[in-house]
Amino acid sequence: MASFRTFSKNAPYLRQQFLALLGNTSASVKFICIIVFCTYFLSFSETAVRVLSVTPGYLMPPVFWVWTAFTFCFLEIHFWEVCVDIITVGLCGKLIEPLWGAMEMMTFFAIANIGVGILSAVFYLFLYMCTFNTDLLFTVHIHGLAGYIAAVSVAVKQIMPDHLLLKTPIGKLTNRNIPLSVLTMSLILWVVGLLEGTYPTMFTSGLLTSWTYLRFYQRHSNGTRGDMADSFTFSSFFPNVLQPPIAVVSNTIYGSLVKVGICTKPVRKYNVGAPTAITISLPGIDPHDMERRRQIALKDLSERLSKAERQQQQGWPQTERPKSSTGGTSKEMKTGLKSVTIAIPGEEPMPAPKSQLSNVVSVPGVSVSPSVSTSDTPVSLPTIPA
């Protein structure tokens, strides 16, 4: 009863934060969030859970419930998982959708979840072949957006890999550490008993599916496919100590798939440019770091411009023009010239400014002052008797 009163008390604040999260997002993002929230109430029915979830034994012939590969991702049986799913989809609409577009984001959503459903079912089928435990085929129900959460973490790692999230005593936590960190945490919670066994399975399947799609198959506006940057290799998901052996294994598997014909070797293209329209294509790696670096540079530029604008609004004093050690202006220092006024005997010289009286040189019959002359009239010098 106390928890219900606490929830009702904080309901307006939660509603405000929820609307702020989903504000300025596409209709597809709002649709996914609404479906996930509504299907949560179907989780209280065992029949609905069995019909909407992927059951490994029912996904294969002769039953062949194919529709479950499309519906399982919208069903959650815990309310905290519903909240996590809505926050993840909302952040995806804020961060990824402006860069990719609504259509590409929905394509990524569909590919990641369908791949998670199929890979997870194949994994439990493999476990059944090893243990001959029929419960793995008919009592395991795969549902939820755990795989898509893993896919979003991979996409964020691709876009902003070095973005600092947290400083810890053992090191810095960046976006490149998130996928493996969340997977490790889910395994620990599963061992403790706070998570179902399907959660780490779906999360691992989401990592593999999303990385494969983003690495080799995603289409870009410049006509290229995938992201073959060195910072997005499979070994980059692991700590630096484990990267060399994992890179050897992953490169061997990739080379075998290229020889078989399942994967193709990427081609690096160079545009020579004007005056000739020649494009040179070389086999190798085509880095996709240019767009990532452009986004980082634009973010840095925006921060600097906003900082300069705040300083201008606060009315910072303008810096004075630098002066030379002799009291001249920067223009005089630049030209290296200084005009001299010579007073003629018999005529009263122009009084020098007070700031220059200390620099007047007294000579018998001649008065020299380092003041600037604005007149171009020639001056006749008197004859000084010997």
Rank of each mutant, 00 (worst) to 15 (best):
P266F: 00
S231H: 13
P283N: 06
D289K: 09
L208T: 15
R294L: 11
R215P: 03
L208H: 08
D227Y: 05
V272Q: 08
G255D: 13
I246V: 12
F216G: 08
T174W: 04
M290C: 06
N251P: 00
V272E: 11
T276D: 10
L189W: 07
L257K: 02
L208D: 11
F238C: 09
T264S: 15
E303W: 06
G171K: 04
S281D: 11
D300H: 09
Y254W: 14
T174E: 15
Q295D: 12
Q243W: 03
L257W: 02
T201K: 00
R304T: 07
V272G: 06
S221D: 15
T252N: 12
N271H: 13
A229P: 02
D300N: 11
G284A: 09
P266W: 00
L257D: 01
P169C: 02
V248F: 14
R292W: 03
Y213I: 05
P287T: 05
N177R: 10
L305G: 13
F232T: 02
L242S: 11
T204E: 05
R215K: 02
T224L: 09
G193W: 00
R215H: 10
S250Q: 04
S231W: 10
F203N: 01
T204K: 01
G193E: 02
L195E: 15
L164V: 12
I178M: 10
L165K: 10
P287N: 07
N175D: 04
D230G: 14
T276V: 15
R293V: 12
S231T: 15
S186T: 14
S235V: 05
N222G: 10
L189P: 07
L195M: 13
V182R: 09
C263D: 12
T174R: 14
S235Q: 13
P245C: 11
G206Q: 00
L187S: 05
K259H: 12
A297N: 07
L187A: 07
G171L: 06
R292I: 01
I246Y: 03
P275D: 03
S250W: 07
A277G: 11
M185I: 07
K167Q: 11
H163Q: 15
Q243C: 08
D300C: 05
P200W: 00
S306Q: 14
S205I: 03
K269W: 12
R292L: 02
V249C: 07
T276P: 01
T252M: 13
F234K: 04
K167C: 08
A229H: 05
H220I: 03
P275R: 01
V272W: 06
